[in-house]
Design a protein around this nucleic acid. Structure first.
Length: 283
DNA sequence: CGTGGCCCCTGTGGGC
DNA sequence: TGCCCACAGGGGCCAC
């Protein structure tokens, strides 16, 4: 569900929590939590002590890279990082009422010093929560990601896809190439740039690379302004849907008329993901 | 090595 | 109404 614009909207929704202390943490499903502060042959096995998921810590920053969101926490002189990955169906909400709405598939609940709660919910469980010992470990993990798509510029994008023989859409979906673009915004960015999603990445040429970088930034910024795309599940931290889906030109519009030229939108599969584009506007 | 294919999981919508 | 299949915003791991 969430790509960069949705995760950025969630990040902004959590920012007012900076300076607040976490007083309790309820891990309801251990297998969505990984603890990277302990030596373990299989970290997927879950946290040994749920208190270590930030209880007693003060939230000092909320940072995002691509689709990943990290809560930086301080506990006396110690540091802790809670990394949130939303997968396809993850939601993070902030609730003030004692009752947690729609408790099904709620896996982790943090209680704050003002009784508010951060609720992590994820029906499909493709997402997860990872505890890291410090920011240095986070930086090391994030060094595996490509540059953040929200500020991508042509020179960086060009070097990221240089020499690649794969379809440009597949490259855009690869978080090691570019961090933050998913299936929706890949199709939308390629449409805006007038590029066929099957085009060979390494053969785009400087003009198209520039157009693509500019389009990715423009599409993502517009989507952030619209507070993300709500197709079905996505909600912000206040449980409010976004409106960026109203901006979609080609995503999920196979067979419909292209909004620019009227030619029917075509669809195929690239990198196991459904792909929509206008054969008339995109070459 | 880069890359495509398969799988993880739950829910939903369409065809019959 | 119900059953079955295809498919959904992501990404880790494997074999080639």
């Amino acid at each position: 569900m969430p790509e960069l614009p949705e995760v950025e909207t969630v990040r902004r929704g959590l920012e007012p929590l900076i300076g607040h202390r976490i007083v309790a943490c309820d891990v309801r499903r251990r297998d969505v939590v990984r603890d990277r502060t302990i030596e373990s042959p299989n970290p997927r096995r879950g946290v040994i002590n749920p208190d270590s998921l930030g209880t007693g810590s003060v939230i000092s920053a909320l940072v995002r890279r691509g689709k990943q969101l990290a809560m930086i926490m301080k506990y006396h002189t110690h540091e802790r990082v809670v990394l949130l990955q939303l997968g396809m169906s993850g939601q993070v909400s902030l609730v003030s009422t004692p009752r947690i709405p729609d408790a099904k598939h709620v896996h982790v609940v943090w209680t704050l010093d003002d009784t508010r709660r951060i609720v992590f919910r994820d029906p499909r469980r493709f997402g997860g929560v990872t505890l890291l010992p410090d920011q240095q470990t986070l930086d090391r993990a994030w060094s595996q990601l490509g540059p953040d798509a929200l500020s991508i510029r042509a020179p960086l994008l060009g070097s990221a896809i240089e020499g690649s023989q794969r379809a440009i859409k597949a490259a855009l979906l690869d978080q090691g190439v570019l961090a933050g673009v998913g299936n929706i915004y890949a199709d939308e960015s390629l449409f805006r740039a007038g590029i066929d999603p099957r085009a060979i990445s390494g053969s785009l040429g400087p003009d198209r690379v520039r157009a693509l970088a500019d389009s990715i930034r423009a599409v993502l910024r517009a989507a952030v302004r619209a507070r993300g795309s709500t197709l079905r599940d996505y909600r912000d931290t206040n449980n409010t849907p976004g409106s960026a889906q109203l901006l979609h030109q080609v995503y999920n519009r196979a067979g419909q008329a292209c909004p620019r030229c009227g030619h029917p939108i075509e669809s195929t599969r690239i990198a196991q993901r459904s792909t929509c584009w206008c054969p008339c506007c995109q070459h």
